[in-house]
Each structure stands twice: as C-alpha cells, then as structure tokens.
C-alpha cells in the first residue's frame, strides 16, 4: 500500500520539491499551505506520516504539531519537522510540541526519504 504523506509548508518552492521527491519515491502526497489548513485536511489526508515546516502564517509548525497530537485519531502519526539549520532551540521546541524527528534543510531528497523511512513501518 502506498504510504500517505501530508506535507505542510507555506513555500511553493518547497511544496513542489516535496511533491516531486515524494511522488518519485512512490508516496502519495497531500499538501497543505499552513498549520490551519494542515489540521483541516488531516481527516481527508489520513496520513501515515506528516512533514511540516515551522515558520508558517496563521498557525506555525509548533501549533500544528500540538494540534495533531491532540487529535484523537491522528495523534500517533509520526511528524517530521523541516528545519533550516540544526538549530537546537527550534528542535527542542518541536520535540516538546510532539515532533517525532526532523529533516535539516537545505532540502535534500535522500535525507527526506530516509527520515520518512525511519519513522514509518
């Protein structure tokens, strides 16, 4: 069964990169543009794993992660955070919010797929 990935990122560039990378790797990709939309489409997306950015309008990555973790049905879904650098503080906040792991930008397809593989069965 194709794994379903929900990506949440406000950058069109990154969204496209994620889409191309994930589709090429055989994932089914559902995309949202910010935390609010991410939570809205959660049910429809029914993801096996979530990849989210931190800096986003309306609802940032931290808030989004907290929202997912509070969702009765989807709280167990692994969430990977896209961070721009190995910023310990941001990583920590993301972890506290309930992130499973992180992917350090610049965006690298191998790293992305690898991280997804690591947190999904």
């Amino acid at each position: 069964m194709k794994k379903r990935v929900l990506t949440v990122d406000d950058s069109r560039t990154i969204r496209n990169m994620l889409l191309v990378t994930l589709n090429n790797a055989g994932f089914e990709t559902i995309q949202a543009e910010d935390g609010v939309e991410g939570l809205e489409v959660l049910e429809e997306a029914n993801p096996d794993v979530i990849v989210t950015d931190i800096n986003m309008p309306r609802l940032d990555g931290f808030g989004f992660i907290e929202g997912v973790r509070k969702n009765e049905r989807y709280r167990a879904v692994p969430i990977l955070v896209l961070t721009t650098e190995s910023d310990a503080e941001k990583k920590n906040r993301a972890r506290q919010a309930g992130a499973t792991g992180w992917i350090v930008k610049p965006f690298d397809p191998t790293k992305l797929i690898d991280a997804i593989e690591r947190v999904t069965a």
Partner: peptide, 22 residues
C-alpha cells in the same frame, strides 16, 4: 506581531529555497 512574522517568514522562505538550489 503578525507583520513582523510575515517579514521574517519572507526572508526565511527565500533562504530556505535558495539553500535547496545552492
């Protein structure tokens, strides 16, 4: 604060994409 955030995000977003393209 949202104005400041939007400004920050704009630069952040450019940086993120630029990084991906080296």
């Amino acid at each position: 604060p949202e104005t400041v955030n939007a400004v920050f995000r704009a630069v952040h977003s450019i940086k993120g994409g630029a990084g991906a393209f080296g």
